[in-house]
């Protein structure tokens, strides 16, 4: 465990080298929130859609913009470059678990983003746009739990893509596809309750909602208290399914690993 935490610390301190770019990241987050809030302001008031107030949607936009910074997005790129350079062979002979190494290294990046991007962005957004408090302490606890689930699912999806890339050798294409699915079904901009009914039905059957809609809706208390347990069970089932798939693919991938670099 201690070894893995060292990877987390290492990844964190690597990121520290680019501290000066923090300002640009904060500006980037601010811009994204500003755009989303402006769009919500442009339409709310003209149409009464229920469950949508400008305060709700501002908070929803802020939470999701910050969540995006925390998710473990770099996994498939990392595996891809060690596949192409061949350095994966030396990673594999080390007496550590490669997936756990990836997870803990990714978490180092997330912790860095939390401290240097998410928290300052949250404060700026709070001062400039205003953020609603969590619906209740119970919902706050549910939100934090959902954040951890989001981290787990984002890691597993990224890892899944990198394992599929053992066969296709094109992780960019697979990442693009995953990105497209996330754009639609995570609900990180347009919440699921505003989807057309069929699309909402499909989105609720998929794991992508846990990377946008679920955490923010729990924070806001849009998901009723009695449904929280059901949502969490669904999340745990998804994590279990994804874990089984990646375990199985990992065994297959290792046995057909072709080193490209020399």
């Amino acid at each position: 465990m201690k070894t893995y935490l060292m990877f987390t610390a290492k990844a964190f301190s690597n990121q520290m080298a680019y501290r000066s770019e923090v300002w640009f990241r904060l500006l980037g987050n601010f811009v994204t929130i500003l755009i989303q809030v402006a769009i919500w302001k442009a339409v709310i008031g003209e149409v009464d859609v229920g469950q949508v107030s400008i305060e709700t949607m501002t908070t929803y936009s802020i939470l999701n913009t910050l969540l995006t910074a925390l998710l473990l997005n770099g996994i498939s790129g990392k595996v891809d470059s060690s596949l192409k350079s061949g350095s994966i062979s030396s990673e594999l002979v080390k007496p550590i678990s490669y997936p756990l190494y990836l997870l803990f290294e990714g978490l180092g990046g997330s912790v860095y983003q939390l401290v240097f991007t998410a928290v300052p962005s949250f404060l700026i957004a709070w001062l400039y746009f205003g953020i609603m408090p969590p619906a209740s302490p119970v919902f706050l606890a549910a939100y934090v739990t959902a954040l951890l689930m989001a981290l787990a699912i984002s890691f597993l999806l990224g890892y899944l893509v990198s394992l599929i890339a053992f066969w296709f050798m094109n992780h960019f294409a697979l990442s693009w596809m995953l990105g497209g699915l996330l754009t639609i079904f995570s609900g990180s901009f347009l919440p699921l309750w505003l989807f057309p009914p069929t699309w909402e039905g499909v989105a609720k059957l998929l794991p992508f909602q846990f990377l946008g809609y679920v955490p923010a809706s729990l924070y806001l208390g849009v998901i009723p208290a009695e449904s929280i347990l059901g949502v969490f069970i669904a999340g745990i089932i998804w994590i279990a399914i994804l874990l089984l798939i990646v375990q199985w693919l990992w065994k297959k991938a290792i046995s057909r690993l072709v080193i490209q670099g020399g």
């Binding site: 294409a173 497209g180 989807f195 057309p196 699309w199």
Partner: peptide, 21 residues
């Protein structure tokens, strides 16, 4: 194919948004 899915996603989100508003 992958990029068409990715940008299709953007179009679909805006389409869903306008469906509502």
């Amino acid at each position: 194919f992958a990029q068409i899915i990715a940008y299709g996603g953007d179009y679909i989100v805006i389409w869903m948004f306008i469906q509502r508003f």
